[in-house]
């Protein structure tokens, strides 16, 4: 079977003046359809750069991204991004923020009424339909992120890219939103690539965890399969042996073998 999403020998070198920094080195990764893959690593290891390359917002220096065997090198709604800081447009309402993407993606394939229904459907999926006429400034951080997810989902992406989507949230809201994302993944079967620096989050949500070494020249250090059946329950897992083992593996990788070097 052909891989759904393939990162093929990706290098990224940032050049500023005469100084050039190699951020990513020889990244190879294949993701199957419907898979939930997390990329974890210390901050500054280039995981956000990697996500931006998949999103098409940054060009790789070498190598390419293949989606269904076709090279992608510019941003598009087939790889919708949920940004870390939600990036909702403050002058639009919640509804209009989601509708903006819907109108572009389905401009010819759906009628006006269908686009409206589809927008509301996606707001319902993240339980934000009640706030559809509010502006981003009027809703909480967790709600903004839900709308961000709705906006991305509404574009019917082939791959959903999550850039530390829960990073800016408090622990309780984060847990709640993680459960929502799990439920959505279960229900819609999206292919998801998520950047995170939270070990529990990675183990709880992912089918596979990609662990990155420290930059510069970050590589994929290890890929861990998470053999936990879905649907997963946060409370039950907290004493599950397989869960704890996965968690330990990631922790060992991050804190023993590739400890974060201050100001490396």
């Amino acid at each position: 079977m052909q891989p759904y999403l393939k990162l093929d020998h990706i290098d990224k070198i940032f050049t500023r003046g005469n100084a050039s920094t190699e951020v990513l080195k020889d990244i190879n990764l294949t993701i199957e359809k419907g898979e939930y893959v997390s990329i974890i690593g210390h901050s500054g290891c280039g995981k956000s750069t990697l996500l931006n390359i998949v999103a098409g917002l940054t060009d790789p220096t070498m190598g390419c991204v293949l989606l269904e065997n076709r090279e992608v090198n510019s941003p598009g709604p087939d790889r919708a991004v949920v940004f870390q800081n939600h990036s909702l447009l403050p002058w639009l309402t919640v509804y209009e923020n989601v509708r903006l993407g819907v109108d572009k993606v389905f401009s010819s394939s759906k009628t006006r009424a269908e686009r409206d229904a589809w927008t509301m459907h996606n707001l319902n999926l993240v339980q934000m339909a009640h706030a559809k006429d509010k502006r981003p400034a009027e809703i909480s951080g967790g709600m903004k992120q839900r709308v961000g997810i709705a906006r991305a989902l509404a574009m019917e992406p082939k791959v959903l890219l999550l850039d530390e989507p829960f990073g800016a949230l408090d622990a309780l809201t984060r847990a709640h939103l993680q459960d929502s994302v799990m439920a959505l993944h279960q229900k819609l079967g999206n292919t998801i690539l998520m950047i995170t620096h939270d070990v529990d989050e990675a183990v709880l949500l992912s089918d596979r965890i990609v662990m990155m070494t420290n930059g510069p020249s970050a590589r994929i250090g290890e890929v861990l399969d998470v053999p936990l059946a879905r649907p997963r329950k946060r409370l039950e897992l907290s004493t599950n042996a397989a869960y704890l083992k996965c968690r330990l593996r990631v922790l060992e990788f991050l804190y023993e073998r590739h400890r974060f070097v201050e100001a490396a």
Binding site: A55, G56, L57, S74, P75, G76, P77, R79, A80, V81, F83, N85, S87, L89, L100, G101, K104, V105, M155
Partner: peptide
């Protein structure tokens, strides 16, 4: 961020 959103939405 806004430019990125615009790029993703095309």
């Amino acid at each position: 961020d806004y430019r990125n959103v615009a790029a993703v939405v095309q």
